[in-house]
Amino acid sequence: MREIRWYYPENLKQLPDLLKREGVIPHGGGTGILRGSLNHIEGLIDLGNLQLRYVRYRNGKIEVGAGTTYADLIEHLSGTDPDHILVKALKAAASTPLRNRITVGGSAAFFPVWSDLMGPLLALDAEVTLTGEKGGSYSLSDYTKNGELRKMSLITSVQWKNKSWTSFYHRESRTKVDYPVFSISILLKVRKDTIEDIKIIIVGTARRFTQCLQIEESLKSLTLDQARIEGIGSKLDVQFTGRRNFSAEYLKHCVGIQLERGLKAILRS
């Protein structure tokens, strides 16, 4: 029975004013708002008419509108690059009806525990474009660390360089339809049997996510034969907080095992 004011803006220009209003938040169609309490919400901005549901290619980048759902993105990328890390990750995220609702922009803004989006996007060095008070483009990594950027601003798109990577994605969960307790995203570029570039992101660590810079550096410019994976997992320097059904100690052990498996699999392929 709480009276919530609904706004249906038709174009992005109307947004900054709306975003400044106390207790008014954007609603892209995802499920984050309904999961929380509605008590502090005075108004909701329905983003449905803003034409934010698109995937386009510009200046060597893939640009994804914030209103694009997981299902949209899976469908789009499956057509052009079925092995894309986002296809692997998002297919396993949430459930079919939720993938039809959860938006890329909403997940990037909230970074909810059930997100399978963030690891791959961080590995891809994605950027977000904001409108509103803090309008402009920022690296996703900075955006997640800087709460100021979220105030009175809205993500309108997420983009990353359209390069071809070999990828690996692993999610550790209880049953299949579950929040991942952690996920591992690996991107690899090999040239003439030499590791030219590699990105490793673990989501779910005590700091929400960790980029494994040391391991990345240690593997770069090695040939595939030279790369020694055995033992990398046990030396991995990440911290976890204990979760339901999983202690911190176990998660640290498990992420090491799965990381080694992932690296072996991706180097083999």
């Binding site: 609603h27 169609g29 499920t31 309904l34 909701l44 329905d46 939720l98 039809n100 609702r101």
Partner: peptide, 10 residues
């Protein structure tokens, strides 16, 4: 979609 996760208004 899950109708419990969609506002009627939207």
């Amino acid at each position: 979609i899950n109708s419990c996760q969609v506002f009627a208004a939207s």
